[in-house]
Design a protein around this nucleic acid. Structure first.
Length: 108
DNA sequence: TGGATGACCTACA
DNA sequence: CTGTAGGCCATCC
């Protein structure tokens, strides 16, 4: 049900569909939207100011690591939010993609 | 109109 | 493994 609008809305729609306890990657969203870059995804999330509709904390990088550090007010904050949803972290401080990786449904 | 910016990814040395 | 370079998309000034 992705409408034809700015990628901003598309990305937000995808992120909003992320089930609780799951995480997705920038590259995954970009690939889903047919983009060849993950920058747009990061850009959209950065421009996003509605964490209620867009759980940015559920979006991680390809390695399962969190963003640079100034996402929500600190990387620690994101970890806290993810942990609050039942997402486990590895000793590296990265999300366990093997258990929580989720990708958008292309059919829908 | 056009350069600069951005929460990234991949490839190569 | 770390560092550098390129890429491509949208928005802002």
């Amino acid at each position: 049900m992705i409408k034809k609008s700015s990628l901003f809305e598309k990305i937000l729609s995808v992120v909003a569909k992320i089930p609780k306890g799951k995480v997705t990657t920038y590259g995954g969203i970009g690939l889903f939207l047919g983009l060849k870059d993950a920058r747009v995804v990061g850009w959209a999330l950065h421009q996003n100011k509605d964490p209620i509709k867009c759980p940015c904390h559920r979006v991680v990088d390809k390695s399962g690591g969190l963003s640079k550090g100034y996402a929500f007010g600190g990387r620690n904050r994101q970890e806290e939010l993810l942990a609050s949803e039942g997402i486990l972290f590895k000793k590296d401080g990265n999300v366990d993609l093997n258990k929580h990786l989720w990708l958008p449904d292309i059919r829908k």
